[in-house]
Design a protein around this nucleic acid. Structure first.
Length: 493
RNA sequence: GGUGCGAUGGCCGAGUGGCUAGGCUCAGGUCUGCAAAACCUGCUACAGCGGUUCGAAUCCGCUUCGCACCUCCA
C-alpha cells in the first residue's frame, strides 16, 4: 500500500491522494439502479468505473467493502416530489406487485452485470428493506432541527441547513442566490421552498407501497435510502461515494445535507463521478429513440446497431476512455474496440504459450509495470494502461517470432503481470476461449486430421486441395493460421 | 438564465509547457505457394483570435461551437 493512488474528488474539484480512514479497510458506496426497467448502456458506465476501482483497490491490498444499493421504492418520476413512484407505476401498468417488478429487474440487472464481468458488490441492500433505518434517520434530522413536518410528510429545511452549513458545495450551487430569486413560497404545496426535498412522504390512497411511521403511512424520500444504508453498512464516516455525474444534484447534494444534519459531519470523504455516455453525439433518452438496452446491444436488435457487440467489447470500449470523459457510442467506435480487444486477447494467449529464449532479455518488463502503476494511480487512467498493453502486444508478437528475446525469469514476470492487469484489474475475459469449451474436445481430433491432410497436400504442392480444406474450415467458422515452421494453428471464430 | 465540462489527425480516444500516446481505418513493404496473422514504414493533429514564455496542443483572456446538470434518466 505504498502506492500513491490519486483520485479526483468532485467535492474539491481536484485530484487528491487517496488516504483511507482506517486502512487496510476501505468503504465504498455506489448508487445502484432503480429497478423498474431493463438495464441499458448507461448502467454499464458507472458499473465499469467502480468495478475497476474495486478491483484496483483490492489488488493494492485493501479490504474493500463495496456497497451498491438497489432502489426499489421512493424514486419518484419527478424530483419535485410530484408524480408516481417509478416501481409502482410499472407495477400498475403491468398489473403486478411492485415487488415482482423490482425482483424481475433486479435479476435482469445481475444477469447483465455478470455478463459484463462485474464483480458482485460486498453488500447490495434494498431500500424497501431499510425503512426502519430511514425512519430513524429522519427522526434524527427532525431532532436536529433541519426538517419540518407538514401534513404528514417531512421535508428537509434547506434554508436553515444552509445557514449553518453550506448547501450546494458539491454541485457548485449557491442557495443564497436561489433564495434571493425564489422569495415566493410554494403556495399550495406542503413544502416551504421549492428546493426543500422530501425525507418522508405521506402516501395517497392510491399508493401501494406504504409503511407506518410517526408522521403518516407513507414512504421514504428518494435521497434517504443512500444516506441510511451507507451509514448502516459503512458507518458515519466512510471513504468513497460514487455514482453518475447526473446524480450530483440533487441526489448527492441531498445526501450530504442529510448525513451532516443527522450526524453533525459529512459522511463520505471522496466523491467520485463517472461521466455520461452519448450516442452519436446525443444523450441517451427514451424520448430520443436512442435508448439501447444491454440485451439489444448483445443481440444487435436495435435499429441503431449494425451488429451485435459482445459484453467484453462493451467493457473494453468503456475502459478505453477515461471515466470522467464523456464517451460517444457509435458503431465505428465499437467495431474498433472489438478488433483491438481481439488483438490484445490473442497476444495474451500467445504470451501464455510462449517459452523463454536463451540468454538475456532484450525487453524491459519493468516498463509495463511502471506504466501500469503510474496510470492507475493517476485517477484510474485505464486508457493509458491499455496503451501500454498494446505496446506490449507488439513486443509479445516480436518475442513470438523471435525478433526479441526474453529470459525465463522476465517471462514469468511478464506473464504474471499481463494476466493480472488484463483479467484481474481490467476484468476482461477471453470470450473466444470460453466459447470453445464444450465443443473443442470432440472437434480437436477432427480438425487436426484435416490439417494433417492439408499439410500432406502442401508438401505435394497440391494447392487446390490445400486451399479447399482451408476454405471449408473457414466456412465452418474455423480459422487456419499457417506458421513459419511447425504445424498450422487454428482458432474458432 | 444559473452551474460545470469540453472542442485533438479519416474515426475513437490519452496527454497537458519542450521529447512517437494507443486502438481502428487507409497506403506501401517483409514473410508466405497464395491467403490470414504477425512485423516494418508512411498518413504527424491539437476550434478561431490575441497574450504570457527562449518555447504552448498544453498557461491566461476573448470568440465560436458542443455537451451535461438545474426537470425522470447511470
Amino acid at each position: 500500500m505504498e502506492s500513491k493512488l490519486t483520485i479526483y474528488n468532485t467535492l474539491t474539484r481536484s485530484k487528491e491522494v487517496f488516504v483511507p480512514l482506517d486502512p487496510p479497510l476501505v468503504g465504498l458506496y455506489v448508487c445502484g439502479p432503480t429497478v423498474y426497467g431493463d438495464p441499458h448502456l448507461g448502467h454499464a458506465r458507472p458499473a465499469v468505473t467502480f468495478d475497476l476501482l474495486f478491483r484496483y483497490l483490492t489488488s493494492l491490498g485493501y479490504r474493500v467493502r463495496y456497497v451498491r444499493n438497489i432502489t426499489d421504492v421512493g424514486h419518484l418520476e419527478n424530483d419535485a416530489d410530484e408524480g408516481e413512484d417509478k416501481i409502482s407505476k410499472k407495477a400498475r401498468l403491468e398489473q403486478l406487485e411492485p415487488m415482482e417488478i423490482a425482483h424481475y429487474y433486479t435479476v435482469r440487472y445481475h444477469r447483465y452485470m455478470d455478463a459484463l464481468g462485474m464483480l458482485s458488490p460486498s453488500i447490495e441492500p434494498q431500500a424497501s428493506g431499510h425503512i426502519i433505518e430511514q425512519i430513524g434517520m429522519v427522526k434524527q434530522i427532525l431532532e436536529a432541527g433541519y426538517a419540518y413536518e407538514s401534513n404528514g410528510s417531512v421535508y428537509f429545511d434547506v434554508e436553515k441547513y444552509n445557514r449553518d452549513h453550506r448547501y450546494g458545495r458539491l454541485s457548485g450551487r449557491n442557495i443564497d442566490d436561489m433564495l434571493a430569486n425564489t422569495r415566493e413560497l410554494c403556495g399550495q404545496d406542503d413544502k416551504r421552498y421549492s428546493f426543500d426535498f422530501a425525507l418522508w412522504k405521506k402516501a395517497g390512497p392510491e399508493h401501494i407501497m406504504r409503511w407506518p411511521s410517526p408522521w403518516s403511512d407513507g414512504f421514504p424520500g428518494w435521497h434517504m435510502e443512500c444516506s441510511a444504508m451507507s451509514r448502516k453498512y459503512l458507518g458515519d464516516r466512510f471513504d468513497i461515494h460514487g455514482g453518475g455525474m447526473d446524480l450530483v444534484f440533487p441526489h448527492h447534494e441531498a445526501e450530504i445535507a442529510q448525513s451532516t444534519a443527522a450526524c453533525g459531519h459529512e459522511a463520505a470523504r471522496y466523491w467520485m463521478h463517472n461521466n455520461m455516455l452519448t450516442i452519436n453525439g446525443q444523450k441517451m433518452g427514451k424520448s430520443l429513440g436512442n435508448f439501447i438496452t444491454l440485451e439489444e446491444l448483445f443481440t444487435g436488435s436495435h435499429p441503431l446497431l449494425e451488429q451485435p457487440y459482445s459484453p467484453m467489447t462493451i467493457r473494453f470500449f468503456m475502459l478505453q476512455a477515461h471515466y470522467r470523459s464523456t464517451l460517444d457510442f457509435s458503431n465505428e467506435a465499437l467495431q474498433a474496440a472489438e478488433k483491438g480487444l481481439d488483438r490484445l486477447m490473442k497476444a495474451v494467449e500467445t504470451l501464455n504459450k510462449l517459452g523463454a529464449s536463451a540468454g538475456k532479455s532484450t525487453v524491459d518488463v519493468g516498463d509495463l509495470e511502471r506504466r501500469y502503476t503510474e496510470a492507475m494511480n493517476d485517477d484510474l487512467n485505464s486508457p493509458m494502461v491499455i496503451a501500454a498493453l498494446f505496446d506490449w502486444t507488439r513486443t509479445i508478437n516480436q518475442l513470438h517470432d523471435g525478433s526479441q528475446k526474453i529470459s525465463s525469469e522476465d517471462l514469468a514476470r511478464l506473464k504474471m503481470l499481463v494476466n493480472m492487469i488484463v483479467f484481474e484489474v481490467l476484468g476482461l475475459r477471453d470470450e473466444k476461449a470460453a466459447d470453445t469449451v464444450g465443443g473443442t474436445d470432440h472437434l480437436t481430433p477432427v480438425v487436426d486430421l484435416l490439417l494433417e491432410l492439408r499439410a500432406e497436400a502442401k508438401t505435394n504442392k497440391d494447392w487446390p486441395l490445400s486451399d479447399r480444406i482451408r476454405n471449408r474450415l473457414a466456412d465452418a467458422g474455423i480459422k487456419v493460421k499457417d506458421q513459419k515452421d511447425g504445424p498450422s494453428e487454428w482458432t474458432i471464430e
